[in-house]
Design a protein around this nucleic acid. Structure first.
Lengths: 369, 369
DNA sequence: AACGAATCGATCAGAAACGAACAGGGTCGT
DNA sequence: ACGACCCTGTTCGTTTCTGATCGATTCGTT
């Protein structure tokens, strides 16, 4: 999963990955871990025993879970002791896709900082977001981590409202428009523009000259990807008109297949040889479609997915840009903490974090004569 | 990969190379290091023991990893004791204006982190900057804080060079162009664009509708100010053509007076009632000129200075945008420290900091009937 | 309640890594 | 030149890590 520069995997790294998986999903099985980490089950069991002895996890038959309140074993986590100093509210637009990892990163940092994190899931609807935020404010929080709608007049209204709140607000994975009216909002966000550029450059280096873009519909990230993609094409002197750029939606299988068909034929017509596909689940489905219709990836069409939740599991594995979600969450909380500690004397700070390009088979140029 | 010049590798250099490899991959084996460094394993083990005693790495059976969260060994805070662990080089283009405060902030943070800061003043000449940076690298630093030239082909060349260095680099008060080729550089910079926008908005709120801009010549900040100023005028629907925008230079009194005269008359001709003056020493001089020529500030002409070193001492005191220079310096060092501690597994991070608007008499609308 | 299947852990074993003790070679100060 | 000292390498017994075996335990189903 984490394809870092090659380094040996020691026991401690294995345990870290167990904790990581645990934070992500809440529970792990010995068997899955043994397969994933390439060791036998007894080794995993011993790892879990060691972690449990330190009070970090709760052992269960067949695996482990995050430390449970019902766990009566002796070692109480010393870091968790003591009352929380701050209560911080967090509102994210979804709790199923993309956001769980960000929440995980935030929660891990919150635990380390002894902060009570109050999470609320909203939708992508501005009114709903506002309602959730207001509810949190009423319940009394010291700060807010929010991922609100930022586009359109509704977005601007929310941002203006947030900017004027008496508690500090840090946007997570969102940036406010560069307006002088919003001068108190801070944020931590992935630089999706840059990610799209990296994808284009990577495909360019693999020899592609007509690089298309398929965006998820209704995604707040989509405009940034489009901008980065366009700019990269311009910087490289590539054509922007000919290549395809279409919207996708994950629902309705037949409609989706039809859309995939359109995209493929447009690629043929325009000579597009490479495609950036927004959201990797879509990329996998698209890869399947191609396989079903005799289109070889990457020979006939190279693919880079944007986002990296499942891209690894495609056939072939799909190259992907991976936003550092846990890290964004962690950094957002740390920004909030320093804000709370240092108050308004500290200047407003806005951070972007670069995604990483994970190169897999779907975009590697064939070695042919 | 890292092609070192042949020659004896002494103990300290060996440990630094161990840390370097560790930052690159996150984990190393005793065996590999022994082969690579041409010493026996017991020597490497002793090195690792020493590093672990200082809390820099986590010892594991077979090698070492970067300090792990699961490592509960005593040395909790690696910065707490012992000699300075890191040597960090810093190159700034000037040691007389603007930069001393940034250096102060950096130095304070360096002292707190028990880091040795090696400062070099360069000029605004790219070749000179490169020379100074190269000298620092040769003297052996673990990281670089640099404020290089970023514009033009010379700037791009320096940035590309910096991006490829083996030691981490954090730009201070500079941003690299948003190019996918520069994907390792980090930075901490004031958002001067935003500062200019704040100035325009402030003047707009004071009733001004024709807002001019006077920029310092040859300043790397000038293009950002111009961009922010232009965008703010556009966003507010103000005229951009009529208002004045001129270059200033601080030398030669007579020439300067002449230039001031031009600006004042252009303001009259275009109906410009407010002016943003880049660099507050110039703003003070301009204020003096106006006083000498019967132009009342702020009644006839409102002034906001960009930068706030001396603006307070004008007659009247001049409103100014104050970049949080100490803070930028401090944040740059902190970014460097986390980079050194956590290695390349940490994503690239780029931060902007907003300046503060200091409202004084020179821009406050008169309360007239 | 009983059964089979899965999971667990005590024990053993092999390979690798480790460290204590000693030895050699170099540097430094006198 | 001399010895004190530091760094490094060698030897060899000890420890650690991982996996395999197999009886004991637990879980889920009938």
């Amino acid at each position: 999963m984490t394809a870092r520069p090659p380094g040996p995997v020691f026991g401690i790294a294995r345990r870290e990955r167990i904790m990581e998986a645990l934070r992500r999903t809440g529970a792990v099985t010995v068997r899955d871990l043994a397969v994933e980490l390439g060791v036998t089950e007894i080794t995993i069991r011993r790892d879990i025993t060691a972690l449990a002895d330190r009070g970090l996890v709760t052992r269960v038959h067949g695996g482990a879970t995050l430390r449970s309140a019902l766990d009566t074993s002796i070692a109480r986590n010393p870091d968790a002791a003591g009352p929380a100093l701050y209560r911080i509210g967090m509102v994210v637009p979804s709790l199923s896709y993309y956001w769980p990892q960000i929440v995980n990163g935030t929660r891990a940092a919150a635990t380390a900082a002894r902060v009570q994190l109050v999470l609320r899931g909203a939708s992508y609807d501005p009114a709903d977001q506002r309602r959730q935020i207001a509810a949190l404010l009423e319940s009394g929080v010291h700060g807010l981590l929010v991922a609100p709608e930022v586009s359109g007049s509704a977005g601007l209204a929310i941002l203006t409202w947030l900017d004027a709140l008496s508690v500090p607000v840090v946007l997570v994975e969102r940036r406010a428009p560069h307006s002088a009216a919003l001068r108190r909002l801070e944020w931590v966000s992935t630089d999706h523009d840059f990610g799209a550029k990296m994808a284009v450059h990577h495909l360019y280096e693999q020899g592609h000259r007509r690089i298309g873009l398929a965006l998820a519909r209704d995604s707040p990230t989509a405009p940034q990807l489009r901008r980065g993609w366009e700019q990269a094409l311009l910087q490289l002197g590539l054509d922007t008109d000919v290549v395809t750029a279409t919207l996708l939606d994950i629902e309705e299988a037949t409609e989706r297949e039809a859309r995939f068909g359109e995209i493929v034929s447009t690629c043929r017509d325009t000579g597009t040889t490479a495609l950036i596909v927004h959201a990797d689940p879509q990329a996998i489905l698209f890869g399947n479609y191609c396989a079903d219709h005799g289109i070889d990836i990457p020979r006939d069409l190279a693919i880079v997915a944007y986002d990296d939740e499942v891209a690894e599991n495609g056939t072939p594995p799909i190259s992907a840009l991976r936003p550092a979600k846990e890290y964004v969450g962690r950094l957002a909380l740390e920004t909030m903490m320093t804000r709370l500690r240092e108050g308004s004397s500290r200047p407003i700070q806005r951070t972007v974090v670069l995604p990483e390009l994970e190169v897999r088979a779907s975009s590697i140029a064939q070695r042919t004569g």
